[in-house]
Nucleic acid binder design. Structure first.
Length: 456
RNA sequence: GUGAUUGUAGCUCAGUAGGUUAGAGCGCUGGAUUGUGGUUCCAGAGGUCGUGGGUUCAAAUCCCAUCUGUCACCCCA
């Protein structure tokens, strides 16, 4: 029995109309990237698990899709592992490849592997799908597209500035109202130091990242649960509730983390970045948010996050500086910074706000009715001629009933239908029907090309 | 991984004190109009009620399990 086909949880099919809209987003983003001198690369959908594992934290490892080895992999698993039902250890034995989880780690691998052929600083962008074995929900899919821009091999804060400009330009072109939040991991490290918990930096950042969502009290509670001393948590409290303009916040935090060298460095970086940004006329507001942490633990400097102002959907773009991502692959001392545009969430935002321009979908301009063999032979060169004039047209493959063919043209929103039967062939004319008005007239080939050429 | 919720025609949904042959709108197919779509009228096709068990004389309806979609938590684009 044939069973109903389906696709895996959290994945989607894209209809022609959706593809047109998605491509509008990709094309916009790509053109901005190119404008700033970034070059496109692609990497394989799957990577060796050794490349992927341990780069995204414990949670990330769980969310990696793993690919089963080929062949009789079960035979190679020691009996005691099977008997103990130890999933993690069994997995190591039967799987050595996984689907990429993001584009940054594969990029780091790419850079290390091909370092001798690349020109540094290397500016690349990459628009490809990534996969996460997460439970799907609103704005979250198991397969989704990221659009990454990174520059690697330069410490200059000018790179951060450039990424901010790119972000501004992309959302300006897409007509989405957004806020850019920035922070610096060094400041967070400084905070952890100054409250006497430098070791707990990860726990602290994860907890305060939730501040906006769950409130100060619950964050405090979570910190205590994570084993941070009560007095330290108390010290943290005033830091998290800092208010004011970017400059005011910066001044206050500078005092708090006075004794931390790393923290001071972070403050300086943010200050420099903000002063550069001030000189540019950006459309998006840039807000220093000391509670912005971001989950990925390879970030070491600036961190960014973009939120849509008019839709509740989480962040639609995020990124930051990573000082030593390539170090894990044997190339230490190479710093990079990058951001990732979440194409699917941007799509959802634009759908919700009705921001897509009307003309994203392009259709056939002229439809030729198929009346039979003789007519087809007569029309083939005509269709060819129109196409060579740049007019998109199609000739129906079957000599189906006229009603069916008209319905087809109508469903595809084709503006012009051309009918050529025996009468027209004899007269050397073309019956041209304009579908919108229903008007119909006989024209010459020259007139047909002129009229359709205007409407394409 | 934890919790909540959903599933009836291609689509959107009606349908419970369990009771003949499960309905509507839209869509689809054919006809009115054998060279004319989008409007109108007429007719028709299409359903193992997500799947598997159980309770019952009897289950779309009640119970259990499972799958799928949705939402929240964790985490994240």
């Amino acid at each position: 029995m044939s069973q109903k086909p389906s696709i895996p949880k959290g994945t989607r099919d894209f209809f022609p109309q959706l593809m047109a809209r998605r491509n509008y987003i990709f094309d916009t983003i790509r053109s901005v990237f190119l404008l700033y001198g970034y070059q496109e690369i692609e990497t394989p959908a799957m990577e060796n698990l050794s490349t992927l594992m341990g780069k995204y934290g414990e949670e990330g490892d769980k969310l990696l899709f793993k690919i089963l080895n080929s062949g009789d992999f079960a035979a190679k698993v020691p009996d005691d592992l099977l008997a103990n039902k130890d999933s993690v250890k069994i997995t190591n034995k039967i799987s050595e490849k996984g689907l990429r989880y993001d584009l940054t780690v594969p990029f780091a691998r790419f850079v290390v592997q091909n370092r001798n052929e690349l020109v540094f600083p290397f500016k690349r962008f990459q628009i490809q799908p990534v996969w996460r074995a997460d439970r799907p929900q609103k704005g979250r899919y198991r397969e989704f597209f990221q659009c990454d821009v990174d520059v690697i091999g330069s410490d200059s804060l000018l790179n951060e500035v450039e990424l901010v400009q790119i972000t501004d330009e992309v959302f300006k072109r897409l007509n989405i109202s957004v806020t850019l939040k920035i922070n610096n991991r060094k400041i967070l490290a400084g905070i952890a130091e100054s409250i006497g918990e430098p070791e707990k930096i990860t726990e602290i950042t994860v907890a305060i990242d939730k501040l906006e969502k769950i409130g100060t009290e619950k964050v405090m509670l979570e910190l205590e649960e994570k084993g941070i001393k009560n007095e330290s948590v108390e010290k943290l409290k005033p830091i998290l509730t800092l208010k004011g303009t970017n400059t005011e916040k910066l001044e206050q935090i500078r005092n708090v983390i006075e004794q931390s060298g790393t923290g001071q460095k972070g403050v300086e970086e943010v200050q420099t970045l903000l002063s550069y940004i001030d000189k540019l006329k950006l459309s998006l507001p840039v807000e220093l948010d000391l509670t912005l942490a971001r989950g990925l633990n390879y970030y070491t400097g600036a961190i960014f996050e973009v939120k849509a102002n008019d839709v509740e959907i989480g962040s639609i773009t995020g990124g930051g500086r990573y000082d030593d991502l390539t170090g894990i692959f044997g190339l230490p001392g190479v710093s990079g910074v990058g951001i990732s545009f979440g194409a699917d969430r941007i799509f959802d935002v634009m759908e919700k706000l009705n921001l897509f321009p009307e003309d994203t979908e392009t259709s056939t301009t002229v439809y030729f009715v198929n009346f039979g063999e003789k007519e087809v032979a007569y029309l083939l060169p005509v269709v060819d001629k129109l196409r060579k004039s740049g007019i998109a047209c199609e000739l129906f493959p079957d000599a189906a009933k006229l009603k069916k063919q008209m319905t087809y043209a109508n469903r595809k929103n084709i503006p012009y239908v051309v009918m050529v039967g025996e009468n027209e062939m004899q007269a050397g004319s073309f019956t041209l029907k304009e579908m919108k008005s229903g008007d119909q007239k006989e024209v010459t080939l020259q007139e047909l090309i002129e009229i359709a050429g205007k409407g394409k």
